[in-house]
């Protein structure tokens, strides 16, 4: 098969793909799962954006609708105890933020948000029914960010069709890891 035929096949395939593909605007366009408020989602966005903030060349996790992602994954893919774990983490963060400066966590300066979460990571809320609240939210933050388009293509390198495998490639300073 020549390249043109291949590309035509690929194009036909893409057109035919009945994949439950996401709306153009991605995660943010999906409805928030029942039982969660906009402010809870915003708090998760802020926590995610503190774990993985914007850095030169790539946005932070808050810009990939990480709160919506965490809530949807928690609802769809995890046991019911995970929702309780998320609520307990949000309560813990809220309490610590109030103790620190009487301002909601999302409104704290980045350095204060970071030191709050560093302290929380050292003494996280205990696991219950097999789900550790901090670990649950942090793991989903990493998953949601590094598999989002921005995370995969800007923070990491993504090549959907590498064409070949090369087993020995010099790693230069600044080279990023492959997303997949």
């Amino acid at each position: 098969m020549n390249r043109r035929t291949l590309l035509r096949h690929a194009a036909q395939l893409a057109a035919a793909a009945a994949l439950g593909s996401l709306p153009q605007r991605g995660w943010a366009a999906l409805p928030r799962p029942a039982g969660w408020s906009a402010s809870e989602e915003a708090l998760l966005d802020a926590i995610g954006d503190t774990i993985l903030p914007a850095t030169p060349g790539s946005p932070g996790a808050g810009s990939v609708a990480i709160g919506r992602f965490i809530l949807l994954m928690t609802a769809d893919c995890h046991p019911p105890a995970a929702a309780d774990a998320v609520r307990r983490l949000l309560a813990e963060v809220t309490t610590r933020a109030q103790a620190a400066g009487a301002r909601p966590f999302p409104e704290l300066p980045a350095a204060e948000r970071e030191s709050l979460l560093v302290a929380l990571e050292r003494q996280p809320p205990p696991a219950r029914d097999g789900v550790a609240p901090w670990r649950h939210v942090k793991d989903l933050t990493l998953l949601g960010y590094f598999t989002a388009e921005a995370g995969a293509t800007q923070a990491l390198r993504y090549d959907p069709v590498p064409g070949a495998y090369r087993g020995s490639v010099p790693l230069r300073p600044g080279d990023r890891a492959w997303a997949t």
Binding site: L13, S21, L22, M73, P79, T147, A152, Y158, P160
Partner: peptide, 18 residues
């Protein structure tokens, strides 16, 4: 149907719904 899906095209990024 999923042959050309990027990770972010999959509703649960490849993870299994419960």
């Amino acid at each position: 149907p999923t042959a050309l899906a990027n990770p972010w095209d999959l509703p649960h990024r490849g993870r299994l719904p419960r």
